[in-house]
Simulated assay, not measured.
Amino acid sequence: MKYVGGELSVITTEEEIIMSNRSKTYQDQVEKIHPEDSYEPEEALETVKELASANFDESVELAVNLGVEPKHADQNIRGTVVLPNGTGQEMTVVVLAKGEKITEAEDAGADFVGGEDLVEDIEDGWLDFDIVIATPDMMDVAGRLGPILGPKGLMPNPKAGTVTFEIEDAVEEFKAGKLEYRVDKNGIIQLPIGKISFPTEDLLENFQEIMDILIRERPAAAKGKYIRSIHTSSTMGPSLKIDPGSVMSMLGR
């Protein structure tokens, strides 16, 4: 229910229901944009920066809806990317290892290093971390964490570079901002591309890097329109649509 022209009226649309639960600041931000319009990438990123009003350095988020069927293994897009300008986020890295690899992980700057003890902590509900890296000889123990870490996208996986004996390289890369991306069950990939405090050109470079990778990784089995939609937003701000055609032109595709 809401008041319209001094009278009580029933909210009838899903959009109105959602907006009625949003903050006044958010609603004011929406009034400054055209939600149905598609923006050029640079214009969208500049607008996201202009609209940001939180009292912290918000992340700039990217969501790409791909024309794939993730339930098919050959269309389950997953990998890692090192953004040219980083993400601006401090990553908390856990390493599951044993022997000399424990020392190697600690020297490389891992935040938490251990074996069975850390596995038990996670089983007990501890999840205060962003990345879990495991050596291959720890996967028999780490495998117990599948039901906990799998749904959160945190389970160590060779394709993501998080199951490896090259612990030093892995820790340093993820601490420097290496990101894992994976398509969800709806065909959407979501990840941060920087902070509001980043210059627009840095955000644009990061955006281009991700889009170039996703386009190059189009599965041969994917049919029809591949890039269905692209949206960007700040942590607390409204979402802006980016024109897929302008992205293809920008990348020379």
Rank of each mutant, 00 (worst) to 15 (best):
P219V: 13
T103I: 03
P238H: 14
F112L: 10
D140Q: 13
Q29I: 04
D57W: 01
Q29K: 11
S233Q: 10
I227T: 11
G252D: 01
L251G: 00
L154M: 06
T80G: 10
L51H: 02
A73Y: 11
I122E: 02
E209G: 03
S20T: 07
Q29L: 11
G115Q: 04
G109W: 00
I122R: 01
L154S: 03
A63L: 10
P199V: 04
N85D: 11
K185Q: 13
I242R: 00
D169I: 06
E46S: 07
G99I: 07
I230R: 02
P156T: 03
A221Q: 11
E104L: 07
R22E: 15
G86N: 09
F174R: 04
R78C: 09
I213P: 00
L51S: 01
L191D: 13
V10C: 12
I131R: 08
G146R: 00
A110C: 01
G245T: 12
I227F: 00
A142W: 04
A160H: 12
E69F: 05
T47I: 14
D169T: 14
E123A: 06
E205D: 15
E168Y: 00
N21G: 14
L145F: 07
L8S: 04
M236Q: 09
I188E: 15
V68R: 00
V94C: 07
R144F: 06
G224P: 03
I102A: 14
I17G: 10
E50V: 05
D117S: 01
S246R: 08
D128A: 03
V163G: 02
P192Q: 12
L118R: 00
G125V: 10
M155D: 06
S234T: 14
V247K: 00
K159G: 09
A108W: 01
R228A: 08
K223R: 06
R144E: 13
Q89P: 05
K185P: 02
K2R: 15
N65A: 05
V60M: 03
E14Y: 15
A108M: 04
P70Y: 01
G146Y: 08
Q190G: 07
K241N: 15
T164P: 09
D74Q: 02
R22K: 15
G161M: 10
G245Q: 10
A170I: 00
Y181T: 09
K98H: 11
V183P: 12
F207D: 01
P136F: 09
V94E: 07
T103A: 15
T162F: 07
I18N: 15
N206L: 05
I133E: 08
I188K: 14
V141P: 04
I193W: 02
N206P: 08
D117F: 07
L127Q: 07
L96F: 04
S229I: 15
G99E: 09
Y226D: 02
M250W: 01
S38I: 12
P238I: 06
S59P: 10
K98S: 14
V171I: 02
E168S: 08
E46I: 13
D74C: 14
I189Y: 10
E7R: 14
K98W: 01
L8K: 07
A52C: 12
Y26D: 05
T13K: 06
